[in-house]
Design a protein around this nucleic acid. Structure first.
Lengths: 222, 222
DNA sequence: ATTATCTATAGATCTATAGATAATGC
DNA sequence: ATTATCTATAGATCTATAGATAATGC
């Protein structure tokens, strides 16, 4: 593997594990046992590394959220979309953690990320539209559908931060992909009131599979 | 005003405007025209400043979310809770931006914030309970109510990040309290399907007041 | 006497580059 | 010849403290 690719891979790994803020170009070079000078031969700075990693992330999610135009959507499709989006969030989990800082530091990234968000929102909205066509959820007015899509997006992108901040244990590796996917339970909760009678039971069963197993945060509340 | 309090106030101001990550103890001292040595006379380090600011924030929100036990809740109460929570988020808006890093750097803060989250979730859940008692929303099973409360929390705490990342303009001061409060529109969207027939119209009117005025992000999508 | 403040600075990073050297590809 | 890599380092911060001095409160 080329050094350039190794730098991208190690950076992603270190960012995910210890947070982008805690990882400098020195750390990345040291982790690869190359000189800092060598790293700077391949990348102008840390921002450029992050920008390339974001482009991978973007490509991955765009690929996942490619909604078929030629056939109706199924419950299995919806499950796949949800699973995939959380897989993507997991693989690039450093990204949302420091999102605002990253966008402030790189105008290209800000522009691209804004477009990315809009594509994701449009995809979610299209999924809702097709779920309605398939008779899985009730059909909604355009206006409600986009407000709902936005709520789905907010829940999805904030779920990991919730897990990392609301749980007792800290330290790296304290979060698992399984826990992350319990966010699907929360997303399906949003859909519950809109399900058709025909599909309600099936979705409730599906949702049950993602029910958080850990002691529920609220159980410990005052 | 005592120097100690000035440090807290200036720190909050600088953190909010430029982000905690971009503000060092040197910046704070310079902004107050005091020496760094003087700042360190009053606080052991930046973490201690942040911890005290968090305690103010916590106290403010706890005060806002004090739910009356002796009387039914009204729509006006609910509006007040929503407005207040967004006021709090606004005044201490630096906090959620770097939340994960802050909690990683200070175990006290992690513990306190976790408890704070749980108290907020419990308060939201209690509000739902009282809204049902007042005949504003339908009564829900405990399990659904806590999943819904969590979704409300996720939407509230992520709304600002969405605004700051999905909008075109960056730079400080590009976000206003009015825009932030449009998050209330999103929260009320979550409640829509559960409203009683009697109250539906009134809540729709209320919600309309918070409808985002800016060009809708999705309108620009592919 | 105690509290508040300043000056000066040690020590720790981090970024990014210059310039030399090694490895590779025609 | 070109590409990849290393060594060494300048310059910019930042944190936190020591030690001196000024201001304040009995």
């Amino acid at each position: 593997m080329k050094t350039r690719d190794k730098i991208l891979l190690s950076s992603l790994e270190l960012f995910n594990e210890r947070g982008e803020r805690n990882i400098t170009t020195n750390h990345i070079a040291a982790h690869l046992a190359i000189s800092p000078g060598n790293l700077y031969y391949h990348f102008r700075n840390k921002s450029d590394i992050i920008y390339e990693i974001f482009q991978e992330y973007e490509k991955l999610v765009d690929y996942y959220l490619d909604i078929p135009e030629d056939r109706p959507i199924t419950l299995e499709d919806m499950t796949f979309y949800l699973e995939s989006v959380f897989d993507g969030l997991w693989s690039y989990r450093f990204f949302h953690r420091d999102l605002e800082y990253l966008l402030d530091s790189d105008p290209r990234l800000r522009r691209d990320y804004r477009d990315f968000t809009n594509r994701c929102l449009a995809a979610i909205s299209r999924i809702f539209g097709k779920l309605a066509e398939a008779g899985i959820i009730q059909s909604q007015l355009e206006e409600l559908r986009s407000a709902m899509s936005l709520n789905v997006w907010l829940v999805i992108t904030n779920w990991m931060a919730f897990l990392k901040t609301a749980h007792a244990s800290e330290g790296p590796g304290s979060l698992s992909l399984t826990e992350l996917k319990q966010g699907i339970y929360q997303v399906l909760t949003l859909e519950l009131p809109y399900l058709t009678a025909e599909y309600r039971e099936r979705v409730l069963v599906l949702r049950e599979k993602y029910r958080p197993t850990l002691p529920d945060a609220q159980g410990e509340a005052v």
